[in-house]
């Protein structure tokens, strides 16, 4: 099973990201934990009021959280895609999910996030990271703690430093 970083530790992970040949009906999904693309999610959503717990959604960097239909809170995992690590739209998407839509489930960076983006991703509300293969997730944990403090408010600490200085 592949390893990911989740809530500050390396764990084995069973979620599979479907990018092509997305299922057209819930019946095709089976038991596996699956993140489906947004349009697929919305179509499946129309089929049932209650989505199975083994289905999550991932959104592309060109998509926005308000396009996700149904009850956001019931989604176990929302993936946010970084088609290239330099495509920084996902940072805004993470903050919107947490701060605008109050999503409390897992937000996972998928695609090509790099180790040296981890501390910023955490600040933007991500708590799960699927890094490119050439990164050792154990070693990458160190990059979660690159900074001891931050100037501006974000998800992890909404109070900006200027309200916290002694």
């Amino acid at each position: 099973m592949p390893k990911i970083i989740l809530d500050g530790s390396v764990v084995e992970d069973s979620w599979n990201v479907v990018r092509e040949d997305a299922p057209s009906a819930l019946a095709e999904l089976g038991e596996a934990n699956t993140l489906v693309p947004l349009d697929c999610w919305n179509a499946l959503q129309a089929e049932s009021d209650k989505m199975p717990a083994n289905v999550g959604v991932w959104i592309a960097s060109t998509e926005l959280p308000d396009q996700i239909e149904g009850d956001l809170q019931s989604i176990p995992v929302i993936g946010v895609d970084f088609p290239a690590f330099a495509d920084g739209r996902g940072f805004s998407i993470g903050r919107l999910l947490r701060q605008r839509f109050q999503y409390t489930g897992q937000i996972r960076a998928i695609g090509s996030p790099i180790r040296d983006q981890l501390s910023y991703l955490v600040r933007c509300g991500f708590n799960a990271f699927q890094l490119a293969e050439h990164y050792d997730p154990e070693q990458a944990l160190a990059s979660l703690k690159d900074f001891s403090d931050a100037y501006q408010g974000a998800v992890d600490e909404p109070v900006p430093l200027f309200r916290r200085r002694g």
Partner: peptide, 17 residues
């Protein structure tokens, strides 16, 4: 200076277009 501190290591805006 207020803005400089806000912009420094801003986590959301380090990979702009």
């Amino acid at each position: 200076e207020v803005m400089r501190q806000w912009a420094t290591f801003h986590p959301e805006f380090a990979f702009l277009p």
